[in-house]
Amino acid sequence: MSPIGKTFAALKCRGRGGFIPFITAGDPDIATTELLLIELAAAGADIIELGVPFSDPVADGETIQRASERALRNGVTLRDALACVRHAKKHVDVPIVLFSYFNPLLKFGEERLAKEAKQAGVDAILVTDLTPEEAQPWIEILVQRELDPIFLVAPTTSDKRLKEIARQSRGFIYAVSRAGVTGARDQMTDDAEALVKRVRSVSDLPVAVGFGISTAEQVRQVWHFAEAAVIGSAIVREIEKLGKSPDLVKRVAEFARSLLEPKETSQ
């Protein structure tokens, strides 16, 4: 069983939902990203998604677009993101999902990436603009290196494709809560729950729900029907707000904790 598989098995034993924060590598700088990985794990992250900055993030809303821009202004590359994982993994063993658009990976070289990502301690890779139809030989390359290929499913995904995506996925399935780009929203729709039900009918893999989840209440809502909640823009927005503040890492970790323990935030 992969580290991600073990994580979900442990969560099931404890009867708890999973918490998956997302941050962009190099935002606000790569040294802080390394500390954030460590402190987010300490704050209760079960898995962390690490975004590779890209110049043209079509699936992302403004918050993550800006994070990508900040990281690129810092000259952060895929190689830096991998180094960051390697360093952080000396301190924590939280599973890491690399979250990227396809072009930077393609440029790096698919074989080389799989090898170096595995060595750095990455556990899975999700490529936002890569569907299983275009993902050969990508999937085999990952599986050979014991990396989990993770794919997205969306409310618009047909049952036929859902089955195929589930067949190609390892670790977990990432369900996009609603049609749209990433970004915090006030309301959850019923789309997410309906989608997760459809995934259940074709797969035994755990399901993580993301896109638009930003509050402790929404995290709990998701835990009623899925194994884990992904929180991206809400955390990235905190990082943006804190800017170069010296206690950024501490306060982002506090924010993460508040998503897990709602009572502390009501003070």
Partner: peptide, 22 residues
């Protein structure tokens, strides 16, 4: 049938767009 001219073309999009493209 999937829009490939040799290795070029295809459909590299976020999952939500696959259904409307189909």
């Amino acid at each position: 049938e999937h829009g490939h001219w040799g290795k070029f073309g295809g459909r590299y999009v976020p999952e939500t767009l696959v259904a409307p493209l189909e």
